[in-house]
Write a protein that binds this DNA or RNA. Structure first.
Length: 814
DNA sequence: TCCTGAGGTC
């Protein structure tokens, strides 16, 4: 069974012969460089009164009486001499640091005859002045001056150190200014791409988009594929894949056909969404574009991200087949990606098989491929195997980089060989660590005997691979230290010391570092410590993300401190950090640790949050919760009254419980005087919860003197007249009948009714992720006649709980 | 393209 059919030979095309253009992100080498090394720093005293390059010599009068700026206003530009006067005035104005006035004046006289200043002003001298403006922080004025001068046909933008201006604009978050300046350069597109990707690297998508928008306004040919690709890549860097989709839609709406590189970038940015990526591939094929090896590699990566080993394997086989018939050539990216697929799935033997495939295909392993292979063993806990591969890699002449070293360290950690990790680290560091580190360590006496915390004084280095690695540079990164933090096991003080050492070498702990520290706190049930680490993070300017909060919540839950877990849950939401499935699972798992009804209700509220956030219902947890709460109806313990404060009007004043309230508002209604419970679209466990909740309310109301005068209808689902009920409906129906008859002793009879289309209540969208128990306005709570799209009559699967059996049930004592 | 942090029931 293969659901990956997209690689059918009909859509596979030979790889394009041409090489891709340089990607926008790596195009800085072709950015216009400042190419005039002979310009000296501008000194006013050396400024000629008159441009020496000017073809005009007869200008002694100008020398004596330079044109004042205010004379611009009345200047008539009708001759070469006046153009020259203008040029001289510009020079004087700039020299007097009166740039604003120069710009205003030039704007006024603009258009009086298409004057060109290029013959009268020395571009280098003016550029030098601009340069001074930039250096003194007046970039805005400098750019404006360059813009206005370019309208007088004097182009100096390229002479004012483009790299520096762009860098300054990026640093001071001035994307529009940067784009305006870039538009003046001869290779404007390249510079715009660089600006966009610089902002992308700074995770500043707002600025990247501003530069992108400005480029559309300022560029002569705004529809440039390099620019599109740059902004799509920036969306990816900033984690905003939705924005990349909007940009793509915009292009299509404007009838602009993206090229293969834009499509590949789009697929890459959306690689976490396999079906979207596949749709992009199909769209590009419809537009007549041939996917290249990169396109397929990105799709393979999408399989990898989705953890779909099956799809990845199918795709790999298909690609291999196409290679065997000469349609394409798998590259080292393809192999590295499929190795990672297997590494993630802990299928290390499969990963090693890919290595053999590579060798027989004549593709050499690069550092990335080797690292992925080593990681495959690391994930399987095979430390020795990992180290053996590392040695093999060195013997093959492939030089390890820091990530590769990290992978070896991580292999030790995953194999619980913590000391070995520290020994490797220390020996590599000992060989390559800079002197400044030793000095700073010695100067920092506060570190005490913890200053060299990563050193394991006893024991020898664990492998002869150390002699190999002496030749290679090892520059520890934050990731390196994070792996070492894990190697601290449960030793919180050791971990703190590792963080200190990290700072000493000029690295900062990131979210991952702090999260590991939270986890270490958790292992000694140190709730206060975990919460304190969150505070430390915030103080250090790092916003705890969902993983950090979830880890801290986990510590609370495992230490049976549910109130603190809830506090953190509320706090993360108030900071705008959205809980995810892991957060909800962690919180709901707490249920098995507690018993109070109040806490159970809090858990039910979390369950509802989870529903609202669009996560699949988790019946396993919900079942546990129901046992604690709604099942009280079955046991009829009589203790639950104290949990709710009723007023004298129970039908108006709902119980405090959020869940009961929403059940009442959404699911209870009267159809022709008959009480009905609508459980369409709910799972069987949810349906059970709702029915028990409603019955519980009825029982409460009965205690206040409100009786039941009618049968209760339970609406399970709708089926088209000529079809059998769906399996979902039958399953829910069976569970409900069992509950009513066997557990509650109620009489539940089928109440099947044929409806004409217009009488058919609205069919609930069976898409459960959209379902919510949220209270709806009263008039929406009733079934509507809209939204049923078939003309055939429908049958409502309903159960009727008889009035008499309800009475008997209400009167029954515990 | 490769390394590091949370959840995973039955």
């Amino acid at each position: 069974m293969r659901d990956f059919v997209i690689l059918g030979s009909s859509i596979i095309t030979p790889p394009p012969n041409s090489h891709p253009p340089p990607s926008s992100s790596s195009s800085s080498s072709s950015t216009p460089q400042y190419r005039h090394p002979i310009i000296k720093p501008y000194k006013p005293s050396s400024l000629p009164k008159l441009n020496p390059l000017s073809p005009l010599n007869n200008s002694s009068t100008l020398l004596q009486t330079p044109l004042k700026l205010k004379e611009f206003d009345t200047l008539e530009i009708d001759s070469e001499v006046n153009a020259e006067k203008l040029a001289n005035a510009v020079l004087v104005g700039i020299k007097d640091k009166n740039v604003r006035r120069v710009i205003e004046s030039l704007n006024k006289v603009e258009g009086l005859g298409g004057v060109s200043l290029s013959a009268h002003l020395d571009a280098f001298v003016v550029a030098n002045e601009c340069r001074q403006l930039v250096t003194s922080g007046h970039i805005e004025e400098a750019v404006e001056l360059m813009e206005v001068l370019s309208r007088f046909r004097l182009s100096i933008a390229e002479l004012v150190q483009p790299n520096d201006i762009i860098k300054r604009c990026v640093l001071s978050h001035k994307p529009t200014l940067a784009a305006r300046y870039a538009s003046l350069l001869p290779q404007a597109h390249t510079s715009i791409c660089r600006i966009i990707s610089e902002f992308g690297k700074k995770r500043d998508l707002v600025s990247a988009l501003k530069a992108y928008d400005a480029s559309k306004k300022n560029l002569k040919s705004p529809n440039n594929m390099y620019v599109y690709r740059a902004i799509v890549d920036a969306c990816g860097l900033c984690g905003d894949f939705m924005k990349s989709r909007y940009i793509y839609e915009d292009l299509l709406n404007q009838k602009i056909t993206p090229n293969i590189y834009v499509f590949n970038s789009l697929m890459n940015v959306n690689a976490h969404d396999f079906s979207y990526s596949i749709n992009l591939l199909q769209k590009m094929q419809k537009l007549g574009l041939k996917p290249d090896m990169t396109s397929y590699n990105i799709l393979l990566k999408a399989c990898c991200v989705a953890g779909r080993v099956d799809l990845a394997q199918d795709m790999y086989k298909e690609l291999k087949h196409l290679e065997s018939v000469g349609q394409l050539k798998l590259d080292v990216f393809t192999y590295s990606t499929i190795i990672k697929v297997f590494a993630d799935a802990k299928l290390w033997q499969m990963a090693l098989k890919i290595k053999r495939d590579m060798l027989s295909a004549g593709v050499s392993l690069n550092t990335v491929a080797w690292s992925s292979l080593i990681n495959a063993c690391a994930h399987a806990g095979l430390v020795d195997q990992a180290i053996q591969l590392f040695e093999e890699m060195l013997l093959a002449g492939c030089e390890p980089n820091t990530q590769c070293f990290n992978t070896i360290l991580n292999a030790c950690v995953e194999g619980y060989q913590y000391d070995r990790a520290f020994r490797f680290f220390h020996s590599w560091k000992g060989n390559k660590m800079s002197a400044s580190f030793d000095e700073s360590n010695n100067n920092n006496s506060e570190q005490g005997d913890m200053h060299n915390v990563t050193t394991v004084p006893t024991g020898t280095t664990s492998s002869h691979i150390l002699s190999f690695t002496e030749r290679f540079p090892f520059a520890p990164t934050t990731s390196t230290y994070n792996i070492l933090l894990k190697a601290c096991g449960t030793n919180y003080y050791h971990a703190k010391a590792v963080i200190n050492e990290m700072r000493t070498v000029g690295l900062s702990p990131n979210q991952i570092s702090w999260t590991i520290l939270v986890d270490i706190c958790g292992r000694s049930e140190n709730v206060d410590g975990a919460v304190e680490i969150l505070r430390t993070m915030i103080d250090a300017g790092i916003k705890p993300d969902v993983v950090a909060y979830t880890s801290a919540i986990k510590v609370c839950v495992e230490s049976k401190n549910f109130p603190q877990a809830l506090t953190l849950y509320e706090e993360m939401k108030s900071y705008g950090t959205l809980p995810n499935l892991a957060t909800y699972n962690t919180l709901l798992r707490a249920r098995s640790n507690y018993g109070s009804l109040h806490e159970v209700q809090q858990c039910l509220a979390i369950y509802q949050d989870m529903r609202k956030a669009g996560y699949k219902p988790n019946d396993y947890y919900l079942e546990e919760l129901i046992e604690e709460w709604c099942e009280g109806v079955i046991q009829d313990s009589g203790e639950y009254e104290c949990e709710f404060s009723y007023s004298n009007k129970p039908e108006i004043e709902r119980p405090k419980s959020l869940l009961l309230e929403t059940i009442a508002a959404h699911l209870l209604k009267r159809v022709a005087g008959i009480l009905a419970i609508d459980i369409q679209g709910l799972t069987k466990v949810e349906a059970r919860l709702v029915i028990l909740g409603v019955l519980r309310m009825i029982k409460e109301n009965y205690a206040f003197g409100y009786s039941v005068n009618d049968d209760i209808l339970i609406i399970i689902g709708a089926t088209k007249a000529d079809e059998s009920p769906s399996e979902d409906i039958l399953e829910v129906q069976e569970a409900i009948i069992k509950l009513l008859w066997n557990e509650l002793g109620l009489e539940a009879l089928p109440a099947k009714t044929r409806f004409a289309p217009n009488d058919t209540p609205k069919l609930q969208n069976p898409k459960r992720s959209n379902l919510t128990l949220k209270a709806l306005p009263a008039d929406n709570a009733l079934p509507t006649t809209t939204g049923f799209h078939t003309r055939r009559p429908a049958v409502l699967q309903r159960l009727k709980v008889t009035k008499n059996s309800l009475h008997r049930w209400l009167q029954r004592k515990a």
